[in-house]
Design a binder for these strands. Structure first.
Length: 152
DNA sequence: GCCAACGTTGGC
DNA sequence: GCCAACGTTGGC
């Protein structure tokens, strides 16, 4: 089993939205490196759900990969701002796994909290200037963040 | 809303 | 295939 971090703009799709949906198709990723990570996901992989554009930004809870990637339907939708004219049904360019809700942290784990804790040094999330919306997470970092999130 | 960092596009 | 211009991300 592997561990990942998924970013979502908090005012666009938050952990509460995932909770009420139960599962969601993770669409609209338009970055090749992020796409490749999505394709690497296996059913049962654990997801840290990160709120970006929040104050503060940080990790709100945990999800799980419920199904492997399918072609992202928004790439074929001419009315979508994520429409990609270069994508075809035979050769889709973008892919979406299904993510299931697992838990909302009792204690939101903010970005500043992660930065001051030497345990999390080396996380890609904390690297200056990184913007990738899908990132791998080490088992140690995942466990440490979940422990912080469950504490109150 | 600012702006630094980064990815993508497209002319050559 | 280089690289400048442009657009986007995302923390603050």
């Amino acid at each position: 089993m592997r561990y990942w971090l998924l970013k979502s703009e908090a005012d666009c799709y938050s952990i509460d939205d995932l909770k009420s949906d139960g599962t969601t198709l993770w669409t609209e990723v338009r970055n090749y490196q992020a796409r490749n990570f999505l394709r690497d996901m296996s059913v049962g992989d654990q997801i840290l759900f990160y709120h970006s554009n929040a104050s503060p930004a940080g990790i709100a809870g945990v999800g799980e990969v419920a199904s492997l990637c399918v072609p992202d339907p928004t790439q074929f939708d001419q009315t979508s701002e994520y429409y990609d004219p270069r994508a075809t049904a035979e050769k889709p360019r973008w892919f979406s796994p299904t993510i299931a809700y697992k838990e909302t942290f009792a204690a939101f784990v903010s970005l500043p909290t992660l930065r001051i804790n030497p345990k999390f040094r080396g996380m890609p999330l904390l690297a200056p200037g990184q913007r990738l919306s899908v990132q791998p997470v080490s088992p140690e970092h995942f466990t440490g963040i979940v422990a912080l999130g469950r504490s109150s």
